[in-house]
Simulated assay, not measured.
Amino acid sequence: MYIWEDAGWPNQTWQDVIIATPLAAVRHDQGRLIGRMEALGLKLREEAVLQTLTQDVVKTSAIEGEQLDATQVRSSLARRLGIDIGALPPTDRNVEGIVEVMLDATRNYQEPLTAERLFAWHAALFATGRSGMTRIRVGEWRVDSTGPMQVVSGLFGRERVHFAAPPAKQVAAEMDAFLTWFNSPPTTDPVIKAAQAHLWFVTIHPFEDGNGRIARAIADLALARSENSPQRFYSMSAQIRAERTAYYDQLERTQKGATDVTAWILWFLECLGRAIHGADGVLAAVIAKARFWERAGALALSERQIKVLNRLLDGFEGKMTSSKWAVIAKCSQDTANRDIAALLDLGLLRKGDGGGRSTHYEIIA
Rank of each mutant, 00 (worst) to 15 (best):
A120Y: 11
H122M: 05
H122S: 13
H122A: 10
H122T: 09
A123V: 02
A124K: 07
A124L: 04
L125D: 04
A127E: 08
T128L: 05
T128S: 15
G129F: 05
R130V: 06
R130D: 09
S131W: 03
S131C: 11
M133T: 15
M133F: 14
T134Y: 07
T134F: 04
T134L: 13
R135S: 06
R135I: 10
I136R: 06
I136K: 04
I136F: 02
R137L: 06
V138P: 02
V138E: 00
V138R: 01
G139C: 02
E140L: 09
E140A: 11
E140M: 12
V143R: 15
V143N: 12
D144C: 03
D144E: 03
S145E: 14
T146Y: 09
T146L: 08
T146C: 07
T146D: 15
G147A: 04
P148H: 08
P148A: 07
M149W: 05
Q150F: 00
V151T: 08
V152K: 13
V152T: 15
S153H: 13
S153I: 15
G154I: 08
L155I: 08
L155W: 12
L155N: 09
F156C: 07
G157S: 02
R158L: 14
R158G: 14
E159I: 08
E159W: 06
R160H: 13
V161Y: 02
H162S: 10
A164N: 10
A164Y: 01
A164S: 14
P166T: 05
P166C: 09
P166W: 02
P167N: 07
P167L: 14
A168H: 04
A168N: 04
Q170L: 14
Q170C: 06
V171E: 05
A172E: 14
A173K: 15
A173E: 14
E174H: 15
E174F: 13
D176R: 15
D176K: 14
D176V: 12
D176N: 14
A177C: 12
F178V: 05
L179W: 08
W181D: 13
F182L: 15
N183C: 13
S184P: 10
S184H: 12
S184Q: 15
P186E: 03
P186Q: 03
P186V: 08
P186D: 08
P186F: 02
T188Q: 11
T188Y: 07
T188F: 07
T188N: 03
T188K: 09
D189C: 10
P190H: 07
P190K: 04
I192P: 09
A195R: 00
A195D: 00
Q196F: 13
A197M: 13
H198T: 01
H198A: 05
H198K: 05
L199T: 01
W200V: 00
V202D: 01
T203W: 11
I204C: 03
H205S: 03
P206A: 07
F207R: 03
F207Q: 01
E208W: 00
D209T: 00
D209V: 01
N211V: 01
N211D: 02
N211A: 00
N211E: 04
G212V: 11
G212F: 02
G212R: 08
G212A: 06
R213G: 00
R213N: 01
I214Q: 06
I214T: 08
I214F: 10
A215V: 02
A215W: 07
A215Q: 07
R216L: 06
I218P: 08
I218W: 12
I218G: 06
I218T: 09
I218R: 06
A219T: 02
L221H: 13
L221D: 05
A222T: 01
L223T: 01
L223W: 02
L223K: 03
